[in-house]
């Protein structure tokens, strides 16, 4: 990564956008994998929130099965939000974020790679453990594909939108709570379509429409969010 930050090295290496993307992705994944606790924290949080529902509401299977799609999505949403603050924080603290902004590399690609790395360790991980936790909430087996597919398509959008909030608050000392305030209202469409997809899967209705809507949100997020994240990072770091 360090040699990517100067113009001369980049020219020497003849690195294209694809190479830049892969390099950033590899670096971020490597750095995150070194901090194991941050990796598992969102998953533990997800599990704990889910545990609260039977304890707080009712352990009755029929009732929980009805609650499951919404509860799983809300818990997944909160778990991604929890890990959001760390997305740019370490890079900001050690100054590499500033270097990144000064470098001649296209920010769009770097930001996209960073968000993808974050998603692979939060959203993707949540998607993979979701079926196990869904069983604890008595979600019918028919609902599992809907749950996993909707989480798979929906959580990247959450990461993209959350990254805007993280970028806006990275310069602040206590950004954590503020991020939730900024980002949660923007999460609502994903929550609505994601939960509906799971409910449709449970009742045996076709899923295609919901997944297409989630896909459309993701496409919009992929096109616009990196621009907003880049602008927000420049503002936060220069200010």
């Amino acid at each position: 990564m360090a040699d990517l930050l100067t113009n001369a090295a980049a020219e020497q290496a003849q690195i294209g956008p694809g190479g830049l993307f892969m390099a950033t992705l590899r670096r971020d994944l490597l750095l995150s994998l070194r901090r194991k606790s941050e990796l598992v924290n969102p998953l533990i949080f997800f599990l704990m929130v889910i545990t609260l529902f039977p304890l707080g509401v009712s352990p009755e299977p029929g009732f929980l099965a009805q609650l499951a799609p919404g509860a799983l999505w809300v818990a997944a949403l909160l778990a991604t939000l929890l890990s959001m603050d760390a997305l740019f924080r370490t890079d900001y603290d050690d100054g590499s974020l500033e270097q990144l902004l000064l470098s001649p590399q296209p920010l769009f690609i770097v930001v996209l790679a960073k968000v993808l790395a974050h998603w692979m360790l939060s959203g993707l991980a949540l998607t993979l453990v979701a079926p196990v936790i869904a069983v604890m909430l008595f979600l019918p087996a028919e609902g599992m594909p809907g749950l996993m597919l909707s989480l798979l398509i929906g959580t990247p959008t959450l990461s993209l939108v959350g990254a805007i909030g993280a970028a806006l608050t990275v310069g602040l000392k206590r950004g954590g709570v503020l991020i939730s305030l900024l980002v949660l209202p923007l999460y609502i469409p994903v929550l609505i379509f994601g939960t509906s997809a799971v409910q449709a899967a449970v009742t045996g209705l076709p899923l295609g429409g919901y997944l297409a809507l989630l896909g459309a949100l993701l496409a919009l997020g992929l096109a616009l969010a990196p621009l907003a994240i880049g602008a927000a990072l420049r503002i936060s770091v220069s200010g």
């Binding site: 209202p185 949100l217 927000a232 200010g239």
Partner: peptide, 23 residues
């Protein structure tokens, strides 16, 4: 900085409002 950051957030919100309303 506050003005610029708020402007970015407001614009993101503006793009989202139709989506939120529809959903």
């Amino acid at each position: 900085t506050a003005a610029q950051a708020t402007a970015v957030l407001a614009l993101v919100g503006l793009v989202n409002i139709p989506i939120i309303k529809y959903s």
